[in-house]
Design a protein around this nucleic acid. Structure first.
Length: 213
DNA sequence: GGAGCGATGTCCT
DNA sequence: GGACATCGCTCCG
């Protein structure tokens, strides 16, 4: 008679409280989103298997003020998603070998994004291992600790996923909040870039074992 | 366990 | 033609 979810915390299963992060979450400065998206889940439907990873490391990329950002030089066909509405996947191919996943931030017309750098596997680790081509006894940390690694483990490619709406729970790729507590966050310099290398725009879950490097 | 380096596609100058 | 938001392999200690 009183369907008050907030008052029934103890009786809710984790799955029933798993909701997609809404578009408004992304309609902000990436520097605010970075620390808040840690602890959320990246969810992928891969055939019949559900792949899930907890987000433990991200980086913020800005617009014209950030020389390291793909958006710094203005809108091109490649980076157009960063200039579009918030909450969409920006996937690019780098070094001839790897895909990287970002989510667009800020309102339509204003560029910005968050790069996903590391996940902690939650469900579907066996499938992730197959996607990565790793042996069964290999270290779990090799699955998703690095932007190229997590993209491979989740089968993320530009062809399949670029531009996809990550706020749609019915999609085969979205970001979810399962109500888990906000982790303790540390902020460091970004990794693997030449330009603007000293800006403190990397956000990590303190002490997590699945960080890159 | 760390430095060095090759692989390799795509974009922009 | 060069740069690149990477990875995994060597080689060296």
């Amino acid at each position: 008679m009183m369907p008050d979810a907030a008052g029934k915390r103890g009786s809710r299963s984790a799955k029933s409280t798993r909701i997609a992060l809404p578009r408004a979450f992304y309609d902000r400065d990436p520097r605010l989103i970075g620390p808040e998206v840690l602890g959320k889940l990246l969810v992928r439907r891969q055939g019949r298997t559900l792949l899930t990873g907890r987000i433990v490391e991200v980086e913020a990329y800005l617009g014209a003020d950030d020389p390291a950002a793909h958006a710094a030089m203005g809108k091109t066909p490649r980076n157009a998603v960063l200039f579009g509405p918030p909450g969409h996947a920006y996937v690019y191919f780098i070094y001839g070998n790897h895909y990287c996943l970002n989510v667009s931030c800020l309102p339509d017309g204003t560029p910005g994004g968050i790069l996903f750098r590391a996940l902690e596997p939650v469900a579907g680790a066996e499938t992730m291992r197959e996607m990565r081509g790793l042996a069964e006894e290999s270290d779990l940390r090799k699955l998703t600790s690095g932007p190229g690694r997590l993209a491979e483990a989740f089968g993320i490619t530009r062809e399949r996923d670029n531009g996809k709406d990550l706020t749609d729970r019915r999609s085969d790729l979205y970001i979810a909040d399962d109500g888990s507590p906000t982790p303790r966050v540390l902020i460091t310099k970004r990794i693997g870039i030449r330009k603007a290398a000293d800006l403190p725009l990397r956000y990590i879950v303190a002490g997590n074992k699945f960080l890159s490097r």
